[in-house]
């Protein structure tokens, strides 16, 4: 039985909400159960934003993720806020461009990804979230990249169609970053 609980956190504007949503879309395509919940309201203004994602083959009851299996943090304040929630032995993905690694818990699997730099090399800082997503799916093996590409194709249509190629590149770069 598969059950994955995840928190994605970062600055407002780093695309953490979208990153979580993409996982829920992919899960929906595969007819798995999923719940995505955002932090919302003024707390997201200027401060940190986060979303919680559950993907499961079973019925999902409590939608709130209190002890995530994985944690993705895009900035340092988010690490401080969520580090202790991650379950022992869980996976911690950090955007090492912005998050300091010193003093992080040693009972978790740490995956530092230089997401900002990789995104900039690809040509747009905004896709740092997709770099992290790439790293995440590569490590957890939850979805193959085609499953995520399918979501890109649905999300980025019309004027946004040009973003498909960029996001695909970012996803692949993130996968490479953890497999190297």
């Amino acid at each position: 039985m598969l059950e994955e609980k995840l928190i994605v956190a970062g600055f407002g504007g780093q695309g953490v909400m979208l990153m979580g949503q993409i996982l829920s879309y992919a899960a929906t395509h595969e007819d798995r159960n999923t719940v995505w919940i955002p932090s919302y309201g003024p707390e997201t203004r200027g401060g940190t934003a986060n979303c919680q994602v559950t993907i499961s083959d079973e019925r999902i009851n409590s939608p709130v993720v209190s002890e995530p299996d994985s944690l993705v943090v895009m900035n340092h304040p988010s690490l401080a806020k969520f580090e202790n929630k991650l379950k022992s032995g869980g996976s911690l993905f950090i955007n090492s461009s912005l998050v300091e690694q010193d003093g992080i818990r040693d009972d978790v699997d740490l995956y530092p990804v230089d997401a900002n730099k990789i995104a900039l090399d690809i040509g747009n800082l905004k896709v740092a979230n997709m770099v992290m997503l790439g790293a995440y799916i590569a490590v957890t093996d939850l979805f193959d990249k085609e499953a995520i590409f399918k979501v890109f194709d649905e999300l980025f249509t019309g004027r946004k169609e040009a973003l498909v190629a960029l996001n695909r590149k970012a996803l692949e770069a993130g996968m490479d970053a953890v497999s190297a």
Binding site: T34, V35, W36, Y40
Partner: peptide
């Protein structure tokens, strides 16, 4: 409650 309004589910 607000959580149901804000959450996403299939």
């Amino acid at each position: 409650d607000g959580l149901l309004g804000q959450m996403m589910e299939p």
